[in-house]
Simulated scan of single mutants.
Amino acid sequence: MNPTNDHLSIVIPVYNEEAGITETIDVLENYIANRLETYELIFINDGSTDNSAKLIRAASERNANVKLIELSRNFGHQIAITAGLRYASGDAVVVMAADLQDPPAVIPAMIDKWRAGYQVVYGKRVSRAGDSLIQRFMAASFYRIFRAITNINAPLDTGDFRLMDKQVVRELRKMDEPDPFIRGMVSWVGFKQTSVTYERQERQRGSSKAQRKGMFRLAVDGITSFSALPLKLPAWLGGLSMLIGLGYLIGAAFTGLTTLKFLVFALFFLTGTILVSLGIAGAYLFRIFNAAKQRPLYVVAKASGFSSKQQSVLTFKTNSKPTPSHQARQ
């Protein structure tokens, strides 16, 4: 792979980053100037109410590598990343934060892994400077809970800072999910993945936009998108309630069954029956939910030995989804 032929896209979601966006642009422009690859910097203004968009627009006018997508309102961090991925044209795409907490100095290590054959290279944090003890605990707990209750082999202690090959990005574009959880989606599509470790920097300018409410909502979106546990939980609790009721009835039979004891048994048993019924309904509901998301049944990384006619028959129709540029012309 010739480095001079590689074209990379760097996707940066932005929300009210006026205080530090100029420095971010300068740092990234200096990084690009010292690299052999060609780059495009795609900033997604997610409904900022400050001068972030104005500053990026000024940079775009003097540097053709700087591009700006302006969303009509604040749609959220994950939607902003999704928009950036759909506009990216690079052979590989890097997603990073606008506050330089994800240092561009890590990108060359990601590129080296990519050239070695890996299609997803995510940044794994060995430290989180500037984060409170509560934030670190919440983040560490979420990743471990998410991995335990889903069938997704999601990496621990990672965020959205990662490099993805264009083949991975192409698969992500097919997934039109209203509440995307990019980290989970990248793990779900598979491909050859690895990590590079780095120390997350402390924010130098501006304030963090990642509030606890937003972090909680992101965690809920991730769990409900990839796990049936919340819907199956009533069935498990119902089964436990029925067992407690039966155990109580057996114990009462030896000590003397009274009307009150029978009513206690009936309460536990009927409550358990209702919860089990809800759990069964939830299992069916999750199947409907999965079907509604219209994720592909599987993702093909490579196929060999087939004729071109067979390949065209086997290729999903979703491969031909229009790109943003095509949609603009329609």
Rank of each mutant, 00 (worst) to 15 (best):
M1H: 11
L8N: 05
S9E: 01
P13V: 00
V14E: 01
N16T: 13
N16D: 14
I32K: 14
R35H: 12
F43M: 06
G47I: 00
S48F: 01
S48G: 07
A53Y: 04
A53I: 04
K54T: 10
R57M: 06
A59Y: 02
A59L: 15
V66H: 04
K67Q: 06
I69M: 05
S72M: 07
F75Y: 13
Q78Y: 06
I79T: 05
A80Y: 01
T82K: 13
T82M: 08
R86V: 09
S89W: 11
S89K: 07
D91G: 10
M96G: 01
A97P: 02
L100V: 03
P104A: 02
V106C: 02
M110C: 01
Y118L: 06
K124W: 04
G130P: 14
Q135S: 09
M138P: 15
R144C: 11
N151Y: 12
A154D: 06
L156T: 03
D157M: 07
D160T: 11
V169R: 02
L172N: 01
L172I: 06
K174I: 03
M175E: 12
E177P: 00
D179N: 09
V186T: 08
R200F: 00
R200M: 02
E202G: 05
K213Y: 07
M215W: 05
S227H: 05
A228T: 03
P230Q: 08
W236M: 04
I250M: 09
A253R: 15
T255E: 13
T258R: 06
V264K: 01
A266S: 02
F268S: 01
L270Q: 06
T271D: 01
T273R: 12
L278W: 08
I280D: 13
G282V: 08
R287W: 10
I288S: 14
F289W: 14
N290Y: 07
Q294P: 06
P296G: 05
Y298D: 12
K302Y: 05
S312Q: 13
V313C: 15
V313W: 14
L314S: 09
T315G: 15
N319L: 10
K321W: 09
S325R: 14
A328C: 06
